[in-house]
């Protein structure tokens, strides 16, 4: 299958001389949800802006749906919807007019039924006659999404769509994203909320300092890099560990009521069986066992820290 968005060695150096993208290559498949994670200033917005035509790339190429974004910019851009990170809206226009304008700007014939559907999906229908400056921040963000969806894009870029958005709206948005995915729309979103990537993405890309550190299936990534912890709840609290358990790196938690054991799921032996046997031999009674997997957040923080250490070295 060919990628719907094909980014090849994309570089961007801003006028001041700052290199925000240091050669990013990325293939995004039709219909997938890709989450881009990265610390502030990593280059996420720059990457999206370069694809959408807001920033001129210094070198490299991008095609969308097989259309080069420079030579066939019309065909490429007609496929793209963009929800920017910052809220930029014409303050005096009503919601309805600004959304209709976006549709027209992208060369689509007027279709009020579609626009109505979009506004209803985003719970904006009641606000359609309100001027955008009269809306709350969360509603403004929804208007931006409505504008991006007004022209039925095949590829949707969401640059931190849930920044400053309450829990309810965030769930609404995830639902919307699910619906769009079901309709075959490819979605690229950036976020600082790891749980967001974890909840909705198919693949996760990590960017730091203008470089794509990795792109991987979310599940594979979690399995590969995930560390699991086993928490052993004890019948009677302990304050010190018997010597026979010294080699496990156990941590006493919850004021001695439980022990925590971290292990690598990819390791040949997890050591759990032996640990449990040793615990029994040491006379510690177990009440309950619980395992948990490390989140993307931990993986991500680890990756970026590794990267920084490399740079420092």
């Amino acid at each position: 299958m060919t990628a719907i968005v094909d980014i090849r060695d994309l570089k961007k150096t801003y006028d001041g001389g700052f290199q925000a993208l240091k050669g990013v290559s990325l293939q995004i498949e039709q219909g997938e949800i890709l989450a881009l994670l990265g610390p502030n200033g990593a280059g996420k917005t720059t990457l999206i802006s370069a694809i959408c035509g807001i920033v001129t790339p210094s070198s490299g190429s991008v095609s969308v749906g097989g259309h080069d974004i420079v030579t066939e910019f019309r065909a490429a851009r007609a496929m793209i919807g963009l929800v920017p990170q910052e809220i930029h809206l014409e303050p005096f226009e009503t919601v309805w007019r600004t959304v209709r304008y976006s549709r027209g700007l992208f060369g689509c014939k007027r279709d009020d039924t579609h626009l109505e559907q979009v506004l209803r999906d985003l719970s904006l229908w009641d606000k359609r006659h309100a001027r955008t400056m009269e809306l709350s921040g969360g509603m403004k963000r929804r208007v931006l999404i409505a504008k991006a969806l007004s022209h039925e894009p095949r590829v949707l870029f969401l640059d931190e769509p849930t920044a400053g958005v309450d829990v309810e709206l965030r769930r609404d948005m995830w639902k919307l994203v699910e619906g769009l995915r079901a309709a075959g729309v490819t979605i690229i979103l950036t976020t600082h909320y790891i749980e967001e990537a974890e909840a909705i993405a198919d693949r996760v890309g990590v960017i730091a300092k203008g470089e794509l550190l990795l792109v991987e299936e979310k599940d594979a990534l979690m399995a590969r890099m995930g560390r699991k912890t086993l928490e052993i709840e004890l019948q009677d609290p302990v304050t010190v560990l018997p010597d026979s358990l010294a080699g496990y790196g156990l941590e006493i938690v919850r004021e001695g009521a439980a022990l925590r054991y971290a292990y690598d799921t990819q390791a040949e032996r997890t050591g759990i069986t032996k640990l449990l046997a040793d615990l029994a031999a040491a006379g510690l009674q177990m009440r309950d066992l619980q395992t948990s997997q490390s989140s993307l957040e931990e993986i991500f923080v680890g990756l970026v820290a590794e990267r920084n250490a490399e740079d420092a070295a």
């Binding site: 035509g53 807001i54 065909a75 930029h88 303050p91 976006s102 700007l105 504008k147």
Partner: peptide
């Protein structure tokens, strides 16, 4: 005005010459 309030992003990303 669109430059000032930032809405120019939409013009730049639209399929218009």
């Amino acid at each position: 005005f669109p430059k000032f309030i930032g809405t120019i992003f939409e013009l730049l990303s639209a399929p218009v010459n």
